[in-house]
Design a protein around this nucleic acid. Structure first.
Lengths: 215, 215
DNA sequence: ATTCAAAGTGAGTAATCACTCATTTTTAGA
DNA sequence: TCTAAAAATGAGTGATTACTCACTTTGAAT
């Protein structure tokens, strides 16, 4: 199974789409991801999909509708219910230590990012300019994930494993470092040679103990 | 003095520009920042600047040249404070501890980010799609900042203030947290109510000591 | 085999795009 | 005040854009 088909499976009800429709979506993801939404022309997408340009507009009234139909499912179907449900497994499996929790979370997010990389790139690019997407993003990701993470933090604070700092700040710092690692590794500098496991351990150690030397 | 003039002062040799040229740059920054480069038309920029469209192309051969002329100076500006000669001597005299160094660095970058926010947004948006900018970015950031930061890190390691971790990893983690704070504060969630000084101190404390509770 | 709605087509359209160029206006030194 | 260069202009260019529509093809139920 190709990468594209894996992505389609995640984002759409595959069976309800004709072959040409699938090819349009795959071509659109590829083009949007490479050149950005505004710089991608429908004629180019049609050509890449091996389809007449009119076929695109048979299924999507406008070019923007095509974009939203690709990005929105990632946030609603994937990030919100599926991913958050998946995330909950991690969250509520009651890891004994924060280290274990962090290790599992990073692995979890990593799989998601790798599989969805092209769509994630489109999402990051277009959220600033598409109010529809931005609203959805804040509602789903920020309100949802952030609040769940806060609960976990309070749990570990009560266990005496985390310092006394407002959970909001702890959440911010933790998410910053997880996303920071993933974006550095897979988006910004994928070509540098990374020792993934080692770097994950260093990141976890850093989150727990910082950089300062103990005397 | 207006925000735009402050920005121009930072990025250009103001005196060498005519009034119309300044207005073109200001209008271009505003338009690119709001709609993105590809979705901004030269006719719109000209209209907003109160200038004939031909005037833009008198000074910039192409639309892309206009973009680069705006973004490129910011990147050099961004690393300028680190490019001072005898950087290490200055550093050691000025900042006895890592904490002081971090505090000064965050404050320093913060001022620049606030003043340059629209241009920073354009930069973040266009680096993925403009090979010219991306090349410059990698050269400056990876080769320049990263290596200089590494030297500083080794210095503090020799002083016994930092743990034994490869300077590359320490640099990545430190930069991640500084940028993570600044982007969260000023780009992603500027509307949340932040206690800036407190959050900076928390970030510094986190970088130095982590989140784990000491028994 | 017939039928019909859905899927697909591609030439066509008005609008807009980045960019040009012959011409006019402004600026500054003599 | 005169003059030459620089700055600014705006109508005009061909190319490209998102999108339309009258038409053809396809496929599944009868």
């Amino acid at each position: 199974m190709t990468e594209e088909e894996l992505m389609l499976q995640q984002l759409f009800d595959e069976d309800k789409l004709t072959e040409k429709q699938k090819k349009i979506i795959v071509a659109a993801i590829e083009t949007f991801s490479e050149k950005g939404y505004a710089a991608s022309s429908t004629s180019e997408i049609a050509k890449k999909a091996g389809v007449a340009e009119g076929t695109i507009f048979r299924h999507y009234k406008t070019k923007k509708e095509l974009l939203v139909s690709i990005v929105a499912p990632l946030m609603t179907k994937f990030i919100a219910p599926l991913v958050v449900k998946d995330f909950n497994k991690v969250l509520y499996r009651e890891f004994e230590t924060v280290e274990e929790f962090l290790r599992a979370t990073i692995e979890n997010r990593r799989d998601l990012l790798i599989r969805m990389l092209p769509v994630v790139k489109i999402m990051l690019q277009e959220i600033p300019f598409q109010p529809e997407l931005r609203e959805q993003f804040f509602e789903l990701v920020v309100e949802n994930i952030f609040k769940r993470v806060e609960k976990v933090i309070i749990g570990y604070q009560e266990k005496g494993q985390l310092i006394d700092m407002p959970p909001k700040s702890i959440a911010r710092l933790t998410i910053t470092n997880i996303l920071g690692f993933l974006l550095s590794r897979y988006v910004l500098f994928p070509n540098l040679d990374w020792d993934d496991e080692l770097e994950i351990e260093r990141t976890i150690h850093f989150i727990m103990h910082g950089l300062g030397k103990k005397d």
